[in-house]
Design a binder for these strands. Sequence first.
DNA 1: GGTAGTGCTATCCTAAAGGATATTACTATA
DNA 2: TATAGTAATATCCTTTAGGATAGCACTACC
Lengths: 121, 121
Amino acid sequence: MSFKTLPSQKLSTTECNQALMHVRDALEVLSGKWKLPILIALSSGEMRFKQIAKEVPGITDKMLSKELKDLEINQLVTRTVLDTFPPTVLYQRTEHSDSLSEVILSLREWGLLHRQKIFGK
Amino acid sequence: MSFKTLPSQKLSTTECNQALMHVRDALEVLSGKWKLPILIALSSGEMRFKQIAKEVPGITDKMLSKELKDLEINQLVTRTVLDTFPPTVLYQRTEHSDSLSEVILSLREWGLLHRQKIFGK
DNA sequence: GGTAGTGCTATCCTAAAGGATATTACTATA
DNA sequence: TATAGTAATATCCTTTAGGATAGCACTACC
């Protein structure tokens, strides 16, 4: 059992399962309808909850709250609470989240290629 | 609204939505529990239905049938029916499926990095 | 004549994802 | 005094993914 990721490099079954695990890890981080749009919104700098909600059309407060929590757990955004009233909470992308960019670029390129392949140019 | 995929390249809103669409296209192709294991199994050459089922532990016939259909629609595997009894159906990865390798490698690398980041080394 | 093998398909079920809506405590402003 | 805004949380609902089980049409073999 091997995977054609590395030309002329054979992977053992164990190595292959580990590789599969890493790929799944990455896919899980990007999974769901909202994580990418939220990260995109946050690319322009730190934002408050309601600001993000405006930048991500269609998302509900519940979903935004949940997804931000997921992203925080995965260290892709930081959450800063200011002691004001009404509460001010600032969200910001982390450096670690920047390291996702290559992956996303790669997905984007293949997605385009695939679309051309399937629907023709 | 821009995305930090390309350093110092600003994307317009439209460009950004298109980029998002391509990323989603790619993610959709890899989504679900079984597509990657099936592609991995098929990496060792063309195989029959029951052979794949053996190589992918835990998958049911129904799931395998459905996933193979999806993969065929996305031109990632070819399906060849031989006129025998019992029916012989051969599945094989396409060249287009090989172009996924870079994406998968990129996901795999980031997945590893992420796991180290979250759980420590 | 039973039994195993082949590549599916159909039915039924559970679990998870995601959406709609309402509510919370509190303040600043009209 | 009423209202809008803040960052959530709670409840309820629908949709989707995925699993368990059984069946089918047919042949070859024991």
